[in-house]
Amino acid sequence: MKLVIFDVDGTLVDSQAHIIASMEAAFAAGDLPVPGRDTILSIVGLSLPLAMRHLAPEAEEVRLEQMIEAYKAAFQEHRLAQGPAASPLYPGAEEMIRRLGARDDLYLAIATGKSRRGLTALMAGWDFADLFISAQSADDHPSKPHPSMVQTCLIDAGVEASDAVVIGDTSYDMEMARAARCHGIGVSWGYHGRAALLTAGARVVLDRFEALETALDEIWKG
């Protein structure tokens, strides 16, 4: 059996507007200037405390905690107000997940920097969520690029690292895959871009979901 491990934000769902709005609320709560859009998106994939520390290195711990709580509250408020529209699936994502999930030679899993609450709420809106045999979040593991989330997915699936592929849009995903001794496939529609993904170790960078199955078969054939 093979294992395909998906990142979420920037890979399966387009949550950039949701993330930016929540980060703006966090920095307002901390009375600090809001970083630019590209700077905010550059930390997507990291756990929230680590991401906030990267964005506000000058903030003392008490203020940082206030900002983290403000981010969580804003994120929850936007999610409740907008529903699935807050983090819509990218074109082709659902179709590809269903296609891969129908195969009898592989398993699907998730490794995300989202909180457990955020991941659970998101997956509650997916009627294909039961296709994932493991769903790991930042609440239960060290932040990416630490390999813990991937290693847990491997254990849950009973699959060797050489038979697993991480699909993601950030250098953190590719570095996590490399740290876990798995293959990495990047996607160009997310937040870090082709050059960063290739530098971080992506075997290939895809421009559309429809190309994923062929890319997987090529890696395992090789």
Rank of each mutant, 00 (worst) to 15 (best):
M1N: 05
K2L: 10
L3P: 08
F6G: 09
D7N: 07
L12Y: 04
S15H: 01
A17Q: 13
H18F: 06
I20N: 00
A21Q: 12
E24R: 14
A28I: 03
A29K: 12
A29I: 07
A29G: 05
G30F: 02
D31H: 13
D31G: 10
P33F: 11
P35Q: 06
P35R: 09
R37A: 13
T39E: 15
T39G: 11
T39W: 05
I40P: 02
L41F: 03
V44Q: 05
A51P: 05
A51K: 03
L55W: 05
E58W: 06
E60Q: 05
E60F: 00
E61Q: 07
V62F: 01
R63S: 03
L64M: 09
Q66C: 00
M67Q: 04
I68T: 04
Y71W: 11
Y71S: 01
L80A: 15
L80T: 15
A81P: 05
A81W: 06
Q82A: 15
G83Q: 06
P84E: 12
A86T: 14
P88V: 11
Y90I: 09
P91V: 09
P91H: 10
R99H: 11
A102S: 15
D104K: 14
D104I: 06
D105M: 07
A109Q: 07
G113D: 05
S115P: 02
S115Y: 03
R117C: 01
G118H: 01
G118T: 03
L119T: 13
L119K: 08
M123C: 14
A124N: 06
A124T: 03
A129P: 10
L131H: 12
I133V: 11
Q136H: 11
S137R: 04
H141I: 02
H141R: 10
P142A: 09
K144V: 08
K144I: 08
P145I: 09
H146R: 11
P147K: 07
S148T: 14
M149N: 07
V150K: 00
Q151Y: 09
T152W: 12
T152Y: 08
C153S: 15
L154V: 07
D156W: 08
D156S: 13
G158Y: 01
V159F: 01
E160Y: 05
A161Q: 06
S171Y: 12
M174E: 02
A177K: 13
A177F: 06
R181P: 00
H183Y: 14
I185C: 02
I185G: 01
S188F: 04
S188Y: 05
G193Q: 08
R194H: 13
T199E: 12
A202K: 02
F209T: 06
E210N: 03
L212Y: 03
E213L: 07
E213G: 04
E213Q: 02
D217V: 07
I219Y: 01
I219E: 00
W220I: 07
W220R: 12
G222M: 02
